[in-house]
């Protein structure tokens, strides 16, 4: 077997992990699986693409930085795109999910609404940007040789580093800050959280902002390493859910580990069985792990 499979799997897994953190945050606090999360990934990538073009045209910064394929324009655009994706998520909550929550809508109604939002956003993105793939850059990357005959591109290393930094930052935010404490309190008991003085609506907005910013980061990473397509987020949805559930819904480290397991599983499936089995791999892994650990790898019973 070619050990290169592991490098590819870990890189893909870190992207899935980034997206899965947002999904698991929203799931554990708002108590519904958000099918539109994939479109936040897609929208994040396209926001960054448009912003990078604007920045490139206005001030330059398109020349690659060092060994990477991207320039400063994309780095700046990524920050702007995170803000834009967060704004999109907040708007979606304000016009759709918040209204349903206030009416006490059943979970299945909210899930279907998220499915509708997913379709509408995907079609909207395709209408604006067309279905043909887009690229942040067409620079060729020269892979670096690692011991053991492994190859990794500088962009892949940058993606791994970005994932590690974001995951640690989010973990510290949730476990060490007052806002993170409020998020955990709302997750356990929203009614009590309000009685304890927490502004639950503000905490929910914060969850959307965090989840959307991470989805955007996942979209930009996927766009850099693969390509940008209107269906990129939707195609990622099954792996995202698999990662979030594998890790134990609500667990941030679990989402990342789940992402790596799914990424590696997919890469090994492609290597051994063929690319047509890739989508099935996430599903099979999910079923297999849930049979052994019904609450996921890091999940709490009943959590």
């Amino acid at each position: 077997m070619n050990p290169q499979v592991f490098v590819d799997g870990i890189v893909a897994g870190s992207m899935i992990g980034l997206g899965a953190i947002g999904l698991t945050l929203v799931y554990s606090i708002l108590r519904f699986p958000n099918f539109a999360h994939g479109e936040l990934v897609t929208a994040g990538a396209y926001f960054a693409l448009s912003l990078a073009a604007l920045i490139g045209a206005a001030v330059g910064g398109t020349a690659p930085i060092g060994p990477f394929s991207f320039g400063w324009a994309i780095v700046l655009a990524a920050l702007g795109a995170m803000v834009a994706t967060a704004a999109l998520a907040l708007a979606l909550d304000a016009v759709l999910f918040q209204r349903l929550r206030r009416r006490g809508a059943a979970v299945i109604i909210i899930v279907m609404a998220s499915f509708g939002a997913s379709l509408a956003l995907r079609s909207g993105i395709e209408f604006v940007y067309t279905a043909s793939p887009a690229y942040f850059t067409r620079e060729l990357q020269i892979a670096m040789r690692l011991p053991g005959g492994l190859r990794v591109t500088p962009d892949q290393l940058a993606a791994l580093a970005l994932t590690a930094v974001l995951v640690v930052a989010v973990h510290l935010f949730v476990t060490r800050t007052a806002a993170g404490r409020a998020m955990r309190a709302v997750r356990e008991n929203p009614a009590l959280a309000a009685l304890a003085g927490i502004d639950v609506d503000r905490t929910i907005r914060l969850v959307w902002v965090l989840g959307a910013a991470l989805a955007c980061a996942a979209g930009i990473t996927a766009g850099l390493l693969i390509q940008i397509r209107p269906t990129m987020g939707f195609d990622l949805l099954l792996p995202l859910f698999a990662a979030a559930i594998l890790g134990g819904v609500g667990s941030l480290p679990g989402a990342v580990v789940g992402g790596l397991v799914v990424g590696l599983g997919e890469a090994l499936t492609v290597a051994f069985l063929g690319a047509e089995w890739r989508a099935g791999a996430a599903f099979m892994l999910l079923v297999a792990i849930l049979v052994v650990r019904p609450n996921g790898l890091f999940g709490r019973a009943g959590g």
Partner: peptide, 27 residues
């Protein structure tokens, strides 16, 4: 809303589920 009632100076202790069991005592 409940958090503003507390801010106004009235605190309420519900009968059940009145602590955050998964958070630490200090939290």
């Amino acid at each position: 809303p409940a958090h503003k009632v507390l801010g106004a100076g009235l605190a309420f202790v519900p009968q059940t589920e009145n602590i955050f069991a998964t958070l630490s005592i200090a939290e």
